[in-house]
């Protein structure tokens, strides 16, 4: 900030003169309107005050605006000039002392998220089929259970029984499962770089537990019948298997530097290369 001198400021500063005209004009108008619910005397008095205030206001402005000279403060009353502080400024740089000036510094590529989602989904299917084989002698109970839970949401009938293989139902359930897995993989790829600590912990344990807990609470409130049909222990175990697999695959993908530090031309794809001092 710099200061610009005016003509002899020490002599004082011209300011608009105080006036009662706006007060009378406002009071007059208010009384005029209030006369609708009070008395005709309010109308006459308000009208007179409004006219008086308006004329006085006009005379304040024409032919010349009324002003007063406000004397300048004495030196002792004035604010002292702003002085430089002795402390030096330490600007944050990327990665310094745990601070990040850009969030996130790097992100996982979307392809890594898609691969992670597919891998997690596949691991989940394998675990679900094995679980069915061990407990019920058929690999299909969890597949049919998933279809029974989700299909009614789309207006489709649930499977007629839980142990048999139904090709159409398995295909539709598989398609839904792949879609969910891909979406979750993309979410992982986007979110994991922004979380502190180890990505496998967040992706493999915390996130599956969080959405399982949220699902349990919401389903109990919204659809207690469906909530009762779910084996929550198995559900949580399968989610953790998904999360650990997907998190592992995604965290192995090669991170990409965020574009925030790139010049506009590079971000817009106008230049293939950057000078070193642009980075």
């Amino acid at each position: 900030m710099e200061t610009k001198s005016e003509l002899a400021p020490e002599a004082g500063v011209e300011l608009p003169a105080s006036t009662s005209a706006p007060l009378y004009f406002a009071l007059g108008l208010s009384m005029l309107l209030a006369s609708l619910v009070t008395n005709v005397l309010f109308a006459w008095t308000g009208g007179a005050l409004a006219i008086w205030g308006a004329v006085a206001w006009w005379r304040e402005m024409f032919p010349h605006e009324q002003k007063v000279v406000e004397p300048a403060q004495s030196e002792a009353e004035r604010a002292p000039p702003v002085k430089p502080v002795p402390e030096r400024v330490r600007n944050l740089v990327a990665g310094q002392d745990g601070h990040r000036v850009r969030l996130p510094l790097e992100y996982h590529p979307y392809s890594g998220g898609l691969r992670g989602g597919l891998a997690g989904g596949a691991a989940m299917v394998v675990a679900a089929l094995l679980y069915g084989l061990v407990t019920d002698g058929s690999p299909w109970p969890l597949v049919n259970g998933f279809a029974a839970l989700v299909f009614p949401l789309f207006g489709a009938p649930p499977p007629p029984d839980s142990l048999s293989f139904h090709p159409g139902i398995a295909a539709a359930a598989g398609l839904l499962h792949v879609s969910f897995s891909l979406m979750l993989g993309l979410v992982y790829a986007s979110v994991l770089p922004m979380l502190p600590g180890h990505p496998r912990l967040w992706g493999g344990l915390v996130a599956p537990l969080a959405w399982s807990g949220a699902g349990f609470v919401c389903l109990e409130l919204v659809d207690p019948g469906s909530a009762g049909r779910i084996q929550w222990g198995v559900f949580v175990t399968l989610q953790i298997i998904f999360g650990m697999t997907a998190g592992e695959v995604i965290s192995r993908s090669r991170p990409v530097q965020t574009l925030q530090s790139y010049p506009l031309a590079a971000r817009a794809g106008l230049e293939a290369e950057m000078r070193e001092d642009d980075t």
Binding site: E2, K4, V82, P84, V85
Partner: peptide, 25 residues
Amino acid sequence: PAYNFLTLPEVRSRRPLWDLKHPHD
């Protein structure tokens, strides 16, 4: 004071007092 500023200021950034306090940055 009633007139706010005896001499009208001139600024070069969004934080004019920062500039005065930190002329090196």
